[in-house]
Design a protein around this nucleic acid. Structure first.
Lengths: 181, 181
DNA sequence: TTGACTGCAAACGTTTTGCATTGCT
DNA sequence: AGCAATGCAAAACGTTTGCAGTCAA
């Protein structure tokens, strides 16, 4: 098994790791050996890796690294955009009604309301993905988030100031940031 | 709060529940009161609901229902396409490297390999979703699955379907059909 | 120097077992 | 009547705390 590609272990990886340090540094975050090990574990893999798998891989480089450090590092790296979260079909956070055979969900980030969206013409996007990656695309998972009409109207009359308004550049490191704009 | 009185509790829901029974029946599955309660809990909500929330809701109708029955029912209902799985940004199954600011992941269902896909022209789809639902779309999560080039070539010469190479994250139940194409 | 980061262990909530019993079709 | 489906309890699992010590900037 382990047919992993023989192309990647070289300078590309090193360069990518340097980029990680740069992105951390810009935000005043530290590039510790543990974070480097975690970044190396994810960037060196050509597959989605779970936290436990990252832990295993990172331990080869840094045997004393703890699992919780891995969790925290992954969170940090996802925050700065170095790694991306991947979802499976089985594991999920919640369920919504599915009225149609094919459809997707749009979720309101303010009130949580979910609605179904059925007119999914994603073929052009899928074709572009196929062309770019060489994969044949069989399936897709798509989910939108935004603000529903009610919340938009409500917000118009109520200019609610942000609680912890930190006009930071982009993302706050506190919890729920958007994964992939 | 209960603003919902007028629109939903009526014939729509009943009809949808009948449809559930029909879909189960076609597959030789039983439409038990518990499954009906679970379906009612999800279909009656206008938000994504977790398994625990479904349990709470279903207990109003059927107080003796167990949490594990809810899990199994949700799994079944997702299988027949009555409910759809929803993912959050925080909770995820695994991580992959993210080379670019904006990008998505395509995963090979055979070998688990993941690649990045950056040419994401999803605006038309997002616009259609906005028009259909009345939401203003801020963000999207998109993930493709398919077969990578290597596996396609390999499969061409070797027609034996071997279950072995599945290094991808762990899959628990019989995960064949994707939840939401 | 300093405060961001790490490691530890125990707590936590969620999901899954295995099997006798129930009850839908 | 037969067999899928349920309920129960406990265990497995993945993830998150809280805090003192540590190290990168």
């Amino acid at each position: 098994m382990a047919i992993r590609s023989r192309a990647q272990a070289g300078p590309d990886l090193r360069e990518a790791l340097d980029e990680v340090g740069r992105r951390l540094g810009v935000r005043g975050m530290r590039y510790t050996p543990q974070r480097r090990a975690v970044a190396e574990a994810v960037l060196g893999a050509h597959q989605p890796v779970t936290a436990a798998q990252v832990h295993d891989r990172a331990r080869r480089v840094r045997p004393e690294i703890g699992l919780m450090t891995v969790y925290r590092a992954l969170d940090t790296l996802a925050d700065v955009g170095v790694v991306r979260r991947v979802h499976g079909q089985q594991r999920c956070e919640a369920f919504v009604a599915a009225g149609h055979k094919h459809g997707h969900t749009v979720v309101c980030t303010l009130c949580g309301r979910a609605e179904e969206f059925t007119h999914c013409h994603i073929e052009p996007v899928a074709n572009a993905a196929a062309a770019e990656t060489g994969f044949s695309i069989d399936d897709h998972f798509l989910q939108f988030s935004g603000v529903c009409r009610d919340c938009r109207l409500k917000r118009r009359g109520d200019a609610s100031p942000d609680h912890r308004s930190h006009p930071a550049p982009k993302q706050t490191s506190s919890g729920r940031r958007a994964g992939t704009p």
